[in-house]
Protein backbone atom coordinates (compact mmCIF):
# COMPACT_ATOMS: atom_id res chain seq x y z
CA UNK A 1 0.00 0.00 0.00
CA UNK A 2 1.69 3.22 -1.09
CA UNK A 3 0.46 6.74 -1.78
CA UNK A 4 1.87 8.91 -4.54
CA UNK A 5 3.64 12.17 -3.71
CA UNK A 6 1.03 13.90 -5.87
CA UNK A 7 -1.79 12.36 -3.84
CA UNK A 8 -0.13 13.48 -0.60
CA UNK A 9 0.18 17.00 -2.00
CA UNK A 10 -3.54 17.00 -2.81
CA UNK A 11 -4.38 15.88 0.74
CA UNK A 12 -2.09 18.60 2.13
CA UNK A 13 -3.96 21.24 0.16
CA UNK A 14 -7.29 19.79 1.35
CA UNK A 15 -5.96 19.98 4.93
CA UNK A 16 -4.59 23.48 4.33
CA UNK A 17 -1.04 22.47 5.28
CA UNK A 18 1.92 24.05 3.51
CA UNK A 19 4.59 21.33 3.35
CA UNK A 20 8.15 22.00 2.19
CA UNK A 21 9.48 19.63 -0.48
CA UNK A 22 11.48 17.55 1.99
CA UNK A 23 8.48 17.44 4.34
CA UNK A 24 6.37 16.21 1.45
CA UNK A 25 8.86 13.45 0.65
CA UNK A 26 9.03 12.27 4.26
CA UNK A 27 5.24 12.53 4.63
CA UNK A 28 4.77 10.45 1.48
CA UNK A 29 6.89 7.58 2.79
CA UNK A 30 5.52 7.76 6.35
CA UNK A 31 1.85 7.99 5.28
CA UNK A 32 2.51 5.07 2.95
CA UNK A 33 3.74 2.83 5.74
CA UNK A 34 1.05 3.96 8.22
CA UNK A 35 -1.71 3.39 5.67
CA UNK A 36 -0.18 0.02 4.92
CA UNK A 37 -0.26 -0.79 8.63
CA UNK A 38 -3.90 0.24 9.19
CA UNK A 39 -4.91 -1.64 6.05
CA UNK A 40 -4.56 -4.89 8.01
CA UNK A 41 -8.20 -4.27 8.99
CA UNK A 42 -9.02 -5.63 5.52
CA UNK A 43 -8.37 -9.12 6.94
CA UNK A 44 -11.63 -8.85 8.87
CA UNK A 45 -14.95 -9.59 7.19
CA UNK A 46 -17.16 -6.80 8.51
CA UNK A 47 -19.87 -6.99 5.84
CA UNK A 48 -22.51 -7.69 8.48
CA UNK A 49 -21.17 -5.28 11.12
CA UNK A 50 -22.89 -1.95 11.92
CA UNK A 51 -20.34 0.89 12.23
CA UNK A 52 -19.84 2.25 15.77
CA UNK A 53 -19.03 5.95 15.59
CA UNK A 54 -19.49 6.66 19.29
CA UNK A 55 -19.26 4.70 22.56
CA UNK A 56 -22.38 6.34 24.05
CA UNK A 57 -25.92 5.07 23.52
CA UNK A 58 -27.34 8.40 24.76
CA UNK A 59 -29.95 10.17 22.62
CA UNK A 60 -32.07 13.35 22.65
CA UNK A 61 -29.89 15.76 24.58
CA UNK A 62 -31.33 19.28 24.28
CA UNK A 63 -31.13 22.69 25.90
CA UNK A 64 -33.93 25.23 26.32
CA UNK A 65 -34.10 28.20 23.98
CA UNK A 66 -33.01 30.70 26.65
CA UNK A 67 -30.52 33.50 26.05
CA UNK A 68 -27.28 33.30 28.04
CA UNK A 69 -24.80 36.18 28.32
CA UNK A 70 -22.34 36.35 25.43
CA UNK A 71 -18.68 37.39 25.66
CA UNK A 72 -17.81 41.06 25.32
CA UNK A 73 -16.42 42.00 21.91
CA UNK A 74 -13.07 42.64 23.60
CA UNK A 75 -13.04 39.11 25.07
CA UNK A 76 -14.11 37.64 21.71
CA UNK A 77 -11.27 39.41 19.91
CA UNK A 78 -8.64 39.15 22.67
CA UNK A 79 -6.64 36.41 20.95
CA UNK A 80 -7.19 37.49 17.34
CA UNK A 81 -3.96 37.83 15.30
CA UNK A 82 -5.53 40.85 13.57
CA UNK A 83 -8.67 42.77 14.58
CA UNK A 84 -10.01 46.30 14.45
CA UNK A 85 -11.87 46.42 17.75
CA UNK A 86 -15.08 45.22 16.09
CA UNK A 87 -14.17 42.43 13.70
CA UNK A 88 -11.60 39.73 13.04
CA UNK A 89 -9.39 40.71 10.10
CA UNK A 90 -8.25 38.15 7.51
CA UNK A 91 -6.66 38.42 4.06
CA UNK A 92 -9.17 39.47 1.40
CA UNK A 93 -12.04 37.12 0.58
CA UNK A 94 -15.14 38.00 -1.42
CA UNK A 95 -18.58 37.00 -0.21
CA UNK A 96 -19.77 34.64 2.54
CA UNK A 97 -19.36 30.91 2.39
CA UNK A 98 -23.10 31.23 2.96
CA UNK A 99 -23.26 27.99 4.96
CA UNK A 100 -24.42 26.22 1.80
Amino acid sequence: MSISRQEVAKVASLARLALADDELDLMTSQLGSIVGFVSQLEELDTAAVEPLAHPLDAKNVFRDDVVKPSLSTAEALQSAPRQDGECFLVPAVLGDSGAA
Partner: peptide, 21 residues
Protein backbone atom coordinates in the same frame (compact mmCIF):
# COMPACT_ATOMS: atom_id res chain seq x y z
CA UNK B 1 -25.94 25.97 11.60
CA UNK B 2 -25.43 29.24 9.73
CA UNK B 3 -22.02 30.80 9.13
CA UNK B 4 -20.90 34.31 10.08
CA UNK B 5 -20.54 37.29 7.77
CA UNK B 6 -17.51 38.31 5.71
CA UNK B 7 -17.44 42.00 4.88
CA UNK B 8 -15.14 43.22 2.17
CA UNK B 9 -15.09 46.86 1.15
CA UNK B 10 -13.10 47.21 -2.05
CA UNK B 11 -14.09 50.84 -2.43
CA UNK B 12 -12.28 51.53 0.85
CA UNK B 13 -9.38 49.69 -0.77
CA UNK B 14 -8.95 47.53 2.36
CA UNK B 15 -6.49 44.67 2.12
CA UNK B 16 -8.37 42.80 4.83
CA UNK B 17 -11.81 41.25 5.04
CA UNK B 18 -13.70 41.87 8.28
CA UNK B 19 -15.40 38.90 9.97
CA UNK B 20 -18.50 39.26 12.16
CA UNK B 21 -19.57 36.01 13.84
Amino acid sequence: EDAGKSMHDESAGLADTRIDL
